[in-house]
Each structure stands twice: as C-alpha cells, then as structure tokens.
C-alpha cells in the first residue's frame, strides 16, 4: 500500500473529521462541564455557598456517567443523536455521545483545578464583601486559569481518543480509518499511519496546553 493521492486525501479528511469532532465535543463538554465543576466546588460543605444535597446528587450523577464504558454510552446515546441532529451515523452524530461522556469528566477536571486554589484567597475576597458570583468570576476562574488550561489539554486529548471509536458507528476521523483499514481490511500500514497522526495530534494539544498554562501563570518568575 502506497501513500497515493487518494489515500492522502482520505487521511486529510480523517484529520479534519477528528479535529472537528474533538473541537465541537470539547466545546459542548466545557459549556456543560465547567458550570457543573463550579457547582461541585461552590456548593460543597465548607464551600462559598454550601448546598450539600445538590452537591451529593450531582456527584452521584457524574460518577454514574463516568462509570459507563464509552463504547456502551455510544450505542445508548446514538438514538438521541437521531432526535437532535437527525442522524445516528457519521461524524456529526458522535458529537452527542462524546459530549455526554466528556462533560462529567470535564466537571471533575475543572473541580480539581478549583480545589487547588488556596482557601485563604477566597477568605480574603469574602472579607472584602465579595458575593458568591463575584468570587466565582473574579477569584475562582481567573486564579485557576493556569490549572484550568492544563486540565483542558488533558480533557481534549481524552476526547480525541474517545472520538477514535466513532469508526464503530459509521463515524469518520483517524480512528475510523485505523479501525476500517487496519482491523476490518487488514491493512496495517494505513492503521499505523493514522495512529501516528493521532499521536501527533495529542502531542500538539498537550504541548499547546502546557505552553498556554505556563505563559498565563503569574506565579512563575
């Protein structure tokens, strides 16, 4: 098997599909997961606005979702894709199960970033009369920024690797190429090429996250 024009085009499409599945799912996962992570921290016992029952229920739901293997979640959630975007096959359809799987993960990643924050800083803000909202917007989020960026690199690379399973349900992307050619048609060369491309994408995302985090962190130097 050679890298002819057709194959290269197919790989290009694969890269693009992997990219947009990951990007869209990450975006939606953060839109859902970030607020959830904030709620987990803020409503915790000893948090800035304790609502223990809400915190508990949310924690249980998140753990439940996190314990379902992605492949199973994928098949459970695809009917939902049919309702929301009108199809259950192809790359767009997988964005829904990816988001459902990633949002609770993101919530936990974000939660752990917030928990790194020194309680004294929040206490200082409270002593100045800051409201719960002001503490979230002006302390929690900006002070956790470097850690949130590192967490984002972790979350996005995880979502990328999940997206590789789209191949099982007729989705596209590099993962699908690896599965279709490597597994079903036994063309290991193409499988390895797509795996290497996936590895490169993970590297790029991770490195970008590291750099952004380091550059934004005013604690260094």
């Amino acid at each position: 098997m050679k890298l002819d024009a057709v194959t290269i085009n197919m790989l290009k499409t694969g890269i693009w599909e992997s990219f947009y599945m990951t990007a869209l799912s990450s975006l939606f996962a953060y839109i859902i997961g970030l607020p959830l992570g904030i709620i987990l921290v803020v409503t915790d016992n000893g948090g800035i606005h304790p609502i223990p029952w809400l915190q508990k229920i949310l924690g249980v739901v998140i753990n439940l979702l996190r314990s379902v293997p992605f492949l199973i979640l994928l098949f459970i959630a695809l009917p939902l894709s049919k309702i929301v975007i009108g199809t259950r096959i192809g790359s767009p359809a997988i964005v829904i199960p990816l988001t459902i799987a990633a949002a609770p993960y993101v919530a936990r990643v974000v939660e752990s970033s917030f928990r790194e924050l020194d309680a004294g800083v929040i206490e200082a803000a409270q002593s100045m009369g800051a409201s719960t909202w002001q503490i979230i917007w002006k302390v929690l989020l900006p002070e956790s920024k470097p850690s949130l960026l590192l967490g984002a690199a972790l979350a996005v690379t995880t979502i990328l690797s999940y997206s590789a399973m789209a191949g099982f349900t007729g989705g596209g992307g590099l993962g699908a190429i690896a599965i279709n050619y490597g597994y079903y048609r036994y063309e290991p060369f193409l499988m390895w090429v797509s795996v290497v491309l996936l590895v490169v994408m993970v590297q790029i995302i991770q490195e970008a996250g590291n750099r952004l985090s380091r550059r934004s962190d005013k604690r260094i130097r």
Binding site: D118, G120, V121, E123, A124, Q126, S127, M128, G129, V139, P142, E143, K145, P146, S216, D217, K218, R219
Partner: peptide, 18 residues
C-alpha cells in the same frame, strides 16, 4: 459592613494572577 472592616492575614492572601 465588611467593607468597613478591612482584614489582613498571616499568609497575605493576595491574588497571585493579578
């Protein structure tokens, strides 16, 4: 009322990113 009562701490508690 807290705005009428400033507070300082042993560990300073400054915002590190500002």
């Amino acid at each position: 009322i807290r705005r009428s009562m400033g507070m300082i701490f042993q560990q300073f508690n400054l915002l590190a990113q500002r």
